Amino acid sequence: MTAEIHRLKGAAPSLDPIMRLVASDMNAVNAVILDRMQSQIPLIPELAGHLISGGGKRLRPMITLAAARLLDYPGTRQHKLAAAVEFIHTATLLHDDVVDGSDMRRGKRTANIIWGNPASVLVGDFLFSRAFELMVEDGSLKVLKILSNASAVIAEGEVDQLTAQRQVSTSEDKYLAIIGAKTAALFAAAARIAAVIAEREGEVEDALDAYGRNLGIAFQLVDDAIDYVSDEATMGKGVGDDFRDGKVTLPVILAYARGSAEERAFWHDAMMGRRISDDDLSHATALLAKHNGIADTLEHARHYGQRAIDALGIFPAGVAKAALVEAAEFAVSRAY
Rank of each mutant, 00 (worst) to 15 (best):
F128N: 06
A66Q: 03
P42W: 05
A111N: 04
D72R: 00
R60S: 13
D125K: 01
L59Q: 04
D96M: 07
D96E: 13
S120D: 10
D100C: 05
H95Q: 14
D72C: 08
A84H: 00
Y73Q: 06
P45W: 13
L127T: 09
G56M: 07
R109H: 14
G116V: 07
R105S: 13
Q78R: 01
P45Q: 08
I113D: 15
A111E: 11
T90R: 04
P74V: 02
L47K: 11
M104D: 07
D96S: 12
L93P: 02
A83R: 00
D100A: 05
A48H: 06
H50S: 06
M104S: 13
A48S: 15
L34M: 12
L94R: 08
V98E: 10
V98W: 07
L47N: 06
T90D: 09
K108L: 14
I44V: 15
D35H: 13
K108P: 00
D72Q: 00
A67C: 15
L122A: 14
L34F: 03
I52F: 04
S120W: 11
S129K: 02
K57E: 12
R58I: 05
L34C: 04
H95M: 10
G107M: 05
L94P: 04
D97K: 10
A119C: 11
H95N: 14
Q40M: 11
I44G: 05
H50Y: 14
V123Q: 06
L34P: 02
W115P: 04
A91K: 08
M37Y: 01
D97E: 14
A91N: 12
A91T: 10
V99E: 11
Q40K: 14
I52M: 08
A67V: 00
K80F: 04
P61T: 01
K108S: 13
M62F: 02
I88F: 05
L34Q: 15
L93K: 10
R109Q: 15
H95Y: 14
D103T: 14
G101L: 09
I113L: 13
A66H: 00
L51D: 12
G75N: 05
R130F: 09
S53E: 09
D96F: 05
L43K: 07
N117Y: 09
L81H: 02
V99Q: 14
V99A: 13
G55A: 05
G56Y: 08
S102T: 10
E86R: 03
P118Y: 12
L93E: 07
L81E: 03
H89T: 01
M37H: 03
A82D: 00
S39M: 09
T90L: 00
D96G: 06
V123L: 03
H95I: 10
P42N: 06
A111V: 10
V99Y: 11
A68T: 06
N112A: 13
V98R: 15
I41N: 07
L51F: 08
M104F: 10
R106T: 07
L34A: 15
G101T: 13
D97W: 13
D96C: 12
